[in-house]
């Protein structure tokens, strides 16, 4: 099953490689991993999307907790949560396609953030499935380039991950 794991870790050199190294050394898979400092600059927050059986996920959480730099770990799947991902897509937008592309961006609540006479660059946020759906809705031949951040997640309501 797909799990989205959030963690807070010391914002120190090498901390990211400890997490990445753990996943590769133990053969866990990483679908995406995002990391950035938090409002408390001594802490980084990381979101990892992974897949595995319940046993594997349990081990992943335990092994992450075992890392000396990791302050707190939360499996967001254990409760309600929201996840969002940002995607930038550069598409062909010339001639009769140009209007259609604008409409598609609107339907998916994307924003066109860069324009040339032949291309648009569209910014889109949402759960990963929505971004996938947008790409599927386009003709593959019009997509010039895509870049995605990987998912960030946060618990709903009172679920708070902080120290």
């Amino acid at each position: 099953m797909r799990h989205i794991i959030s963690l807070l870790m010391e914002n120190e050199a090498g901390a990211l490689s400890r997490v990445a190294g753990l996943f590769s050394a133990r053969g866990y898979n990483i679908e995406s991993l995002t990391v950035a400092p938090t409002e408390d600059e001594t802490l980084s927050r990381m979101t990892i999307v992974t897949r595995g059986s319940d046993d594997v996920i349990e081990q992943i959480i335990k092994q992450l907790n075992k890392l000396v730099d990791v302050v707190k770990v939360l499996d967001l799947n254990e409760g309600d949560h929201i996840e969002r991902e940002l995607m930038l897509v550069k598409v062909k937008a010339a001639g009769k396609d140009r209007e259609e592309m604008k409409r598609m961006a609107d339907i998916f609540r994307g924003r066109i953030i860069d324009v040339t006479d032949k291309t648009y660059t569209i910014e889109l946020t949402g759960p990963g499935s929505k971004l996938d759906a947008f790409l599927e809705a386009l003709d593959a031949s019009v997509i010039l380039e895509t870049v995605r951040t990987g998912a960030s997640g946060i618990g709903r309501g009172d679920r708070i991950l902080r120290i």
Partner: peptide, 14 residues
Amino acid sequence: TVGITRPCVKHNFL
């Protein structure tokens, strides 16, 4: 050294 030993130490520091 920190990179090489990372998987075989409890923790390491530079």
